[in-house]
């Protein structure tokens, strides 16, 4: 980094109508940075505060949370009715909406929402025997929230087991048990995997 009173003048240009900043000539890093900047600028334009600056992370604007909650509820309802494909679609919508939150809103909230939604989507995928998609969703869910997400751990373990990837499933469940040692379902799943492995060895 340069010293505090020096900077490198970059060859930036602004489109007067669209207000999009471009560089000429440009490098990949600069182009990426400007793309991010333009996206952020677009988001910042409809932030709705009088000063045009992002509000502090808390309190959160409740509108989007309510919308996400509604989508999740209707997803759950479809799931209960047995329309698993529809439920997956609704959960995906809710996930997109949660990911569409402005980036300056609390990341903890995003993690929480996304992990729950992904876990539900994994569930709906599993109900349709889409084990591969279920496994990926559950993995993502766990990545977002490792502690207190026993269902996520269990779901990916089950999916891997269903796909016959016993070694992976075993490693996964073992890791899960480090976080959720008392979870009965995980313990059972582990036993089941071991049984299957034993059965395979004996084969």
């Amino acid at each position: 980094m340069e010293s505090p009173d020096v900077f490198t003048l970059l060859p930036l240009e602004m489109n007067p109508t669209t207000k999009i900043i471009t560089a000429n000539p440009s490098s990949t890093a600069l182009a990426n940075e400007l793309e991010a900047l333009n996206a952020l600028h677009k988001g910042l334009l409809n932030v709705g505060t009088p000063t045009g600056t992002p509000p502090p992370p808390v309190p959160v604007n409740p509108t989007r949370s309510a919308q996400i909650g509604k989508l999740r509820e209707s997803g759950n309802a479809e799931f209960r009715k047995g329309n698993h494909a529809q439920a997956v679609k609704l959960y995906s919508l809710a996930i997109d909406m949660a990911l569409g939150r402005p980036h300056w809103e609390p990341s903890g909230l995003v993690r929480e929402e996304i992990s729950g939604l992904l876990s539900n989507r994994a569930q709906a995928n599993m109900a349709q025997q889409h084990w591969a998609e279920g496994a990926v969703d559950a993995e993502a869910s766990v990545e977002m929230k490792k502690v207190g997400n026993a269902k996520g751990w269990w779901r990916r373990g089950t999916c891997l087991l269903e796909m016959g990837r016993l070694d992976e499933a075993e490693a996964w469940v073992k890791q899960g048990l480090e976080f959720e040692a008392t979870e009965q379902d995980l313990v059972q799943l582990k036993q089941e995997i071991e049984k299957r492995k034993g059965g395979k060895a004996a084969h």
Binding site: L10, L30, E33
Partner: peptide
């Protein structure tokens, strides 16, 4: 180099 800073100052 601090690219974002350069962009801002530019």
């Amino acid at each position: 180099p601090h690219l974002q800073r350069n962009v801002y100052l530019s």
